[in-house]
Computed example of a mutant assay.
Amino acid sequence: MISKEDYLCSICLGIFIDPCRLKCQHVFCQSCLLDLIDFHNIKYKCPMCRVEFINKENPLIIDLELQAFVQNNFPNQYQQRVEEQKIIRSLLPNELKIEVNYGNYYKFEDDEDDGLQHQWTVHVSLDYTKQSDKIALNNLDLNSLIKNVTFTLDETFFPDVITVRQPPFLLTRWGWDVFTIPIKIKFKKEHKIQPIELEHHLVFEDDGIEKRQIVKIDISNLSQFQVLKQNSQQQLQQQQ
């Protein structure tokens, strides 16, 4: 017989929602992990056994097989947890933790004419850290909030400052060597979200490199968040 007790998160003590399995095999709700870890450090520790795991191992990937199992075997409890997450989202400060995914694709080609053998494409995109946030905000595409992304290249390029105004936010060039590219993400004026600035150092190995950084943005001016907050407040009033 399947016991619900075997599928409870040891942090929130609720049934798993968006479960993430660490390399030590301990499982936690994704939102619980996000609330505990320090995003400015590269190494994190399991809340249970303190074994370190590294950001590039992407421990926040949801175990879809386990999630489906929980949904199928405990549908009522799972749906209740989803609704709880929506309410929690609306009661938190107007900040949303999001993923900035960036890096570069790389391809080597032998060009005897001008010697430009390295083709690279630097790219930037935004994504949710929590599936529950995406559901709560009515599947809002975070990339639709972006006004433009500016890439500042080495001064040997002309022009050396390129602004991409439409998704996908990427830039392809040929070059001789690697260098660091400052990146600035600006959001549409009506959202009143502060720009995100980061740097990417090109990698000319294999197919390139993928990176991720977790940042906080103020979503208080998003209509989706205002509707969520209003609906959740009404639900709370009805329960009282």
Rank of each mutant, 00 (worst) to 15 (best):
S125L: 14
V51R: 06
D38L: 01
F108M: 08
V203K: 15
K107A: 05
D160M: 01
I209G: 00
G103H: 06
L171I: 03
A136Q: 08
N72C: 11
V161F: 01
L34D: 10
C46A: 06
E205L: 11
Y128K: 06
R212S: 08
I185G: 04
E84D: 11
N104E: 07
E112H: 00
V215E: 14
E57I: 04
E210G: 02
K56A: 07
T180H: 05
D218W: 02
L202Y: 03
D207E: 06
Q234I: 13
D218H: 09
P168K: 08
T163V: 00
E57W: 10
S3W: 05
P168Q: 07
I209W: 05
Q224M: 02
L153Y: 08
K211W: 02
Q235V: 06
I61D: 04
D154G: 01
N94G: 12
A68C: 11
K97Q: 14
P75W: 12
L36K: 15
G14C: 14
P159E: 00
L34F: 15
V70F: 15
I61R: 14
V227R: 08
K184S: 06
S144E: 15
L153Q: 05
K86P: 02
I54L: 11
I146F: 11
S10Y: 01
I98D: 05
T129S: 11
